[in-house]
Design a protein around this nucleic acid. Sequence first.
DNA 1: TGCAACCAGTTGCATTTTACAATTAAACAT
DNA 2: ATGTTTAATTGTAAAATGCAACTGGTTGCA
Lengths: 138, 138
Amino acid sequence: MENHRSYCAINLGLEVFGDKWSLIIIRGIMFEGKRHFRELLQSDEKIASNILTDRLAMLEREGIITKEGDPEHKQKIIYSLTQKGIDLLPILTQVVVWSFKYMPIDIEVNRHAKMVAEGGNEMQEAIKQQLRKEHLKS
Amino acid sequence: MENHRSYCAINLGLEVFGDKWSLIIIRGIMFEGKRHFRELLQSDEKIASNILTDRLAMLEREGIITKEGDPEHKQKIIYSLTQKGIDLLPILTQVVVWSFKYMPIDIEVNRHAKMVAEGGNEMQEAIKQQLRKEHLKS
DNA sequence: TGCAACCAGTTGCATTTTACAATTAAACAT
DNA sequence: ATGTTTAATTGTAAAATGCAACTGGTTGCA
């Protein structure tokens, strides 16, 4: 049996990704095409390798990502999003929209984010479809 | 000068509300009509009073809430959302939508959340308008 | 075959944050 | 006057995070 702080919808979501790193990792996989540990380690925010290990395990446990060996490179591991992970896109998108309105955004650094934020629902659906193609094996 | 981990839009948002408590507090003010310290302390998730104090100060510093003395009760303090705080509604809404799809939601506990999640854009606009009326003095 | 570089972590330890419980000072109600 | 309510504060233990070094295997290349 799992132990939740409460069964409020907002809380249940926050229990999974309500921390400083989880959505940063999802961003890397979702928007920056990162699929390997080493790539995710290289973010501007400088996540520590033990924290990255911990969060990847948690995200896998929660069914948001999957891991598998890279058939081309026996020492590499490929991280993929599940549908549950892909469905975090609307949350990420709204974070971007809010930050564009209120935070000191570097427009150059956030070209792609700006596109997502301004692209509306059709842009999101296009991205989701692309992600399904690249991440879901079925 | 502020010290940001990075100037990525997603990161800048997470630096403000990317933790286990900030959005729980916003939820209390936004959806449960809580305006006093004591009310916010009474959530199901049982936030500790020192953490609540800390987060309220942070949210005020970030311009997401304001505090003012209650004219009716000199020992009470009223917490209000700013427009920046009200604009967190779409993020909260998407968290609710995601949790309804993937987490073990207690439907009874989340009647209001379900309404928000299913209400679409017009529902959100109605809520925003109501919040502006109750929280913004202008 | 030998060797350096690469990969996904792991380990140990210091620092920071959070949790928990008790306490406080001012304001208020009776 | 006295007890209650309010928004906190304080002290301390526990947990999470940050940091740097290290590991055991893999790969590319000479």
